[in-house]
């Protein structure tokens, strides 16, 4: 059973659709700890403001619970940011699973913010990227980014180099949207389902 954490934040439909395309017919949408604990895989989506999303996660009683999960967990976009130590967006303390902070892109000549569109990922590590070439393109939409750290498993450059994806133990996260990243994204989702 594949569970999607449904904590009232973000457009869950695109994640459901992507799982459907990867062959998962009926992912379970839930904020129940008992159900999440029983899932084979857990996806933590999220869009919008990180401090609002973190508050919503706390309101559901999941901020302490998610770090105790032992099966593979995938955070997407703001979902990943909530798994970092803290975010500059609303200066909020997050779950602290990944050993890094989330900060805002600094304005610079010729640098568009938000970072929106297709960008390449490199220095790929872990089975999440099995079968992918270095420099593969994925789709990003964000104004805050997780800094590089020992948990970085993919790096992207937009003015600065940052963590396109992170992993520690059974926890994975992508700052990009695999559900919108064409065939590359579909492969990443399939890889996650096979972890």
């Amino acid at each position: 059973m594949i569970a999607i954490v449904n904590y009232g934040v973000g457009n869950i439909r695109s994640v459901v659709n992507a799982l459907n395309r990867a062959g998962v017919t009926e992912p379970v949408l839930t904020a129940e700890p008992e159900l999440l604990a029983k899932a084979d895989k857990v996806v933590l989506p999220g869009v919008g403001d990180a401090s609002c999303a973190m508050a919503a996660l706390r309101d559901c009683g999941l901020a302490e619970f998610i770090p105790t999960l032992t099966q593979p967990v995938l955070g997407i976009c703001v979902g990943l940011q909530l798994m970092c130590r803290r975010s500059e967006e609303g200066d909020v303390k997050c779950m602290g699973i990944f050993d890094t902070d989330v900060v805002r892109f600094q304005p610079a000549e010729g640098l568009k913010i938000p970072h929106m569109g297709w960008n390449s990922i490199s220095d790929l590590k872990t089975g999440l990227f099995k079968g992918l070439k270095e420099g593969s393109y994925v789709y990003y939409v964000h104004s805050y980014y997780p800094q590089l750290c020992g948990d970085t498993i993919a790096a992207t450059r937009h003015g600065v180099a940052f963590s396109g994806a992170l992993a520690r133990g059974n926890f994975y996260g992508t700052q990009f949207h695999p559900e919108k990243s064409g065939e590359v994204g579909t492969l990443i989702i399939k890889n996650f389902l096979e972890l």
């Binding site: 439909r13 459907n20 395309r21 789709y139 919108k180």
Partner: peptide, 8 residues
Amino acid sequence: IALAINIP
């Protein structure tokens, strides 16, 4: 479209 297409 949202179900079938995997790009934005």
